[in-house]
Design a protein around this nucleic acid. Structure first.
Ligand code: MN
Ligand code: MN
Ligand code: MN
Ligand code: MN
Lengths: 153, 153
DNA sequence: AACACTTCTTAGCCTAGGCTAACTTTCAGA
DNA sequence: TCTGAAAGTTAGCCTAGGCTAAGAAGTGTT
């Protein structure tokens, strides 16, 4: 029903299917965000503290221990995490890979935001959300930006 | 239990409360994202098509009509939207404000991503998700970046 | 006026991700 | 060794946001 008599009208709305695809991709990113944040945090805790306890996740995620138990259950079901009660959480191969990717993405976003003028704390804050919605293309662009800035021939 | 004997150790983890605050803010952004996307789309449809039907939202969001009904119900409950069945959706004052803010944020993010090297379609795609997680500070930084680029005195 | 098509709603279901309260298990210190 | 605190689990609840299938309600065309 779109009027196509004018060659380049006030075309602000994309084709419905394309539009829908954008939102679908975003919903997908939302679904994986929790897993990424958890495995990233588990990896950080393992590296920095030597162990990652559910109670630490609870504190650092700002969520009840019951919620952590449930979430960890899903991560376990999905083959990302293993647990030894009272002995902490461990990442599977897949979990480690996901954590590594998440961390490098996180760090890249933080560095980019700082380069673009944000203070470190705001950059960290924003990165926590933005990291899950930047495509590989966007990340590549961020990396190029940083490279150019560091080496401005 | 954090060891504070060393002055500046491998401090990668922020204080637990700060860490939790970051995630809390992100959860908040996630909660408001759907409302923003819906009112933004309704405003776009009203402007471009003259009316915003639930069935169009369904198509453009890539979601069933039943889901749209439910979501619109929440938006109505929250005072953002009004409905006249078979006559489309309308924004309240609050809804219009939210839509306007969402759209300007969306556009800013798109322009910024393009300026940083993304192609238009990827920029649109990514903006759909990123827009909900960029703080005012980040948006201001993006705007500064664009301004400087356009006027590189 | 009737009929078909479209639009919208309703009912019933599901998962993720939150919560509190109560319980169990482990650990550590007296 | 006991025993209290910490850690973890379980049960039961909630909301958002998805879905399908079925039915109701407009709308438009003949
Ligand atoms: Mn994150
Ligand atoms: Mn992160
Ligand atoms: Mn969006
Ligand atoms: Mn948007």
């Amino acid at each position: 029903m779109t009027d196509s008599r004018v060659s380049m009208p006030r075309r602000s709305l994309p084709a419905a299917e394309d539009h829908a695809a954008r939102f679908a991709r975003q919903r997908e990113a939302d679904r994986t965000a929790t897993a990424e944040d958890y495995v990233e945090l588990i990896a950080d805790l393992l590296r920095e503290e030597g162990e990652a306890r559910a109670v630490d996740l609870s504190r650092r995620m700002g969520v009840s221990q019951a919620t952590v138990t449930a979430t960890i259950g899903r991560l376990q079901r999905d083959g990302l995490v293993e647990t030894k009660p009272y002995r902490g959480l461990f990442l599977t191969e897949a979990g480690t890979e996901l954590a590594t990717a998440a961390k490098s993405r996180h760090d890249l976003v933080v560095r980019f935001l700082i380069a673009v003028g944000l203070d470190a704390e705001t950059a960290e804050q924003d990165a926590e959300g933005l990291e899950h919605h930047a495509s590989d293309e966007a990340l590549a662009a961020f990396a190029r930006f940083l490279a150019k800035r560091d080496d401005p021939i």
